[in-house]
Simulated assay, not measured.
Amino acid sequence: MIKKTITTPYDVAEHLRTPKEMAAYLEACIEEANGDAAFIAKALGDIARAKGMTQVAKDSGLTRESLYKSLSGDRIPGFDTILKVISALGLSLHATPAIKK
C-alpha cells in the first residue's frame, strides 16, 4: 500500500519575522522580478501580511481592502501606494548602480 503524502500550502509570510528578513525578501524579489511590478507588489503583500495587514493599513493611511487589492499581484499599484506601504513596513528604498551583465 502506498502511503499518501500530506502537504500544506507554503506561506512565505509565516517566515518573515524580523525587519531584516523582510528587507532581504523584498531585495531578492526585486532582483528576480525582471521588471514585473505586480511581482514586487505581491512581495510587498507577503510582507504586509507578515506584519499584520490591519496595522500596515493604519500606518499607511490606506484601507485593508485597498491594500489587499493593490498587493495581490493581480494589478500594479500606483507608486504613491508603494511608497506608503514601504514606509508603513518600516523599510526604505535605496538606489545603487546597476551591474551590467
Rank of each mutant, 00 (worst) to 15 (best):
A23E: 11
L62I: 08
A95L: 12
F79V: 05
D80Q: 05
A98Q: 04
D80W: 01
G73V: 01
A43M: 01
D11R: 09
L89C: 02
T96R: 03
A24T: 10
T7F: 13
L67G: 03
T5Y: 09
D36V: 01
I2V: 14
A24P: 00
G45V: 02
Y10S: 07
A88Y: 06
A13G: 01
K69Y: 13
K3F: 09
R49V: 02
A33D: 01
L91D: 02
G90P: 07
G52N: 09
V85C: 00
G52W: 14
E32Y: 04
A48E: 07
T5M: 06
L71T: 00
D36T: 04
A50I: 06
T7I: 13
K101G: 12
T63L: 07
K42P: 02
G35F: 03
S92E: 15
G61Y: 12
T81S: 10
L26Y: 07
L26Q: 10
G90N: 09
K42R: 15
R64N: 04
T54E: 08
D74E: 15
R17W: 09
L62C: 07
D80R: 00
K58F: 11
L67T: 03
A13T: 05
L89N: 05
E31R: 11
S60E: 13
I47P: 00
A13D: 07
S60D: 08
E32N: 13
E21L: 04
G52Q: 09
G45I: 04
M1C: 07
I2N: 09
E32W: 09
A50H: 03
L26I: 03
S70C: 07
R49Y: 14
S60N: 06
A33Q: 04
T96H: 09
A88D: 06
A13Q: 02
L89Y: 08
G35R: 00
L83M: 06
I40C: 10
L91P: 01
A50G: 04
G61T: 05
P19G: 11
K4S: 10
A33H: 07
I40Q: 13
L67A: 01
T54V: 14
V12P: 01
S87W: 11
K101C: 05
K3D: 15
T81A: 09
A95V: 13
I99T: 15
L67Y: 02
